[in-house]
Structure formats: C-alpha cells, structure tokens
Amino acid sequence: MPGFSLVHLEFLGWAAMWTLGLSAIAFVGGGLVGFAVALMRISPIRWVRYAAIAYIQVVQGTPLLILLFLIYFGIAIVGFQEVPALIAAGIGLTIYSSGFLAEIWRGCLQSVPKTQWEAAECLALTPWQRMTRVILPQAMRIATPPTVGFLVQIVKNTSLASVVGFVELAQAGKLINNSIFEPFTVFMVVAAIYFAICFPLSTWSRRLERKLNVSRR
C-alpha cells in the first residue's frame, strides 16, 4: 500500500483553497448580512430591534451542523433537487457568521459614546452621514481586532461543511485516510495547514488589539 505522498499533499493543498474560498464567502456574506442586522439591532424602531435580536439569538443558539443540515435539506424541500454543496455550505456559513458579526459590530457601534452621535446630529448631518463620517470610522478601529479574531472561527468551522458533501480541507483528509489508512500522518498535515492559515490571522488580531490599546492609552 502506498503511503502519504506528494499527490496527497497536492490534493490537500487544493482542498485548502476551497476552505479559504468558503471562508471568504462566509466572511463577505456574513459581513454584509451581519452589518445590516447590527444596524437593525440599534434601530430606534422597536420591532426592527426585536427582529434583529431574535435573528441573532436563533442563529447563535443553533449548532452550525444543524444549520447546515437545515439549509441543505430545506432547499431540497423547497424544490431544488440538486443543491450544489458550495451553495448550501456558503449560505449556512453566511448565516452563521452574520449572527456573530452582528453582535460583535453592534457592541462596537454602541461603544462610540452617545455624545458623538448627538454631536453629529446637532450639526444637522443626515443619519447616513452621521454613520459613515462620524460613527463608523471610530467603530471600525474598535471592531477590527475581534473581527479578525472571528475570522479564525470561520476558517475552522468550514470543516463542518463536509456534512453537506463539500470537499474542503478536513473532508479531503478523511478521503485520503480512507485510502491509505495513515490517520496520524494525514490529520497532522491537515492540522498543520489549518494552523498555517489561522496562526497569522490570530497574530494579526492580537497585534491590532495591542495597537488599539496603545493609541487609547
């Protein structure tokens, strides 16, 4: 039986690209939805605020695995027979990320002092101008470290996409192991690749946080 070889490594490298791609989809999609939900969460209109709270609670309270199953089989029930795994996994991870990013960003928006919102309002800025010119520039500085930190969670959680038949890094490891039965070697390599992706991200996040603390004194 042939052992772990360059061919397998190449396969893992290719799967790692899908992990990255799926992470990117989850981050961009989750970011867009999450930002909208974060804005809804601090809306002055009560029912909008409550709808956002409900969304966040439901998403955060549902295991990603179950969310992925629900999307995968849910779409099939609605009538699409063959759901491409990428679509199902992309939607599932987008929803998952949006629930967490919404809550992270809500906190950052609200940590900009109320007096800043008022000062902008008193200068006759529109709500949009107030958000883009005054609040967001301040909130984004605060938001960057935890957001990059959450990216690490997204990358690791893409491994669950294998349950809907998506071949990413973890699933590729399983497939290789099924043929060569060298679980320790295979999964060590898989773990090393995850680490190579996540470590720079968490280092970056920590560095951003330090910088933020320094500039705030």
């Binding site: 007096t115 008022e118 000062a119 008193c122 200068l123 005054v134 520039p137 301040q138």
Partner: peptide, 29 residues
C-alpha cells in the same frame, strides 16, 4: 439644527478628525 449651534461641556469633537476636518464636516455634508 442648521439654525442652532450647540456646544457641550465635554467638547464632543470627533477624535478621528483634525480640528480643521471637524469644522469642515458639516459645511461640506
């Protein structure tokens, strides 16, 4: 608010903008 200016005890300048940019914001927006 275009007709009424208000100044608070705690200044409430926008910390990410220079003095000049703080002042330019409302006239340009």
């Amino acid at each position: 608010r275009r007709d009424v200016g208000i100044v608070f005890q705690s200044y409430n300048l926008f910390p990410h903008l220079t003095a000049e940019q703080n002042i330019m914001l409302a006239p340009s927006c």
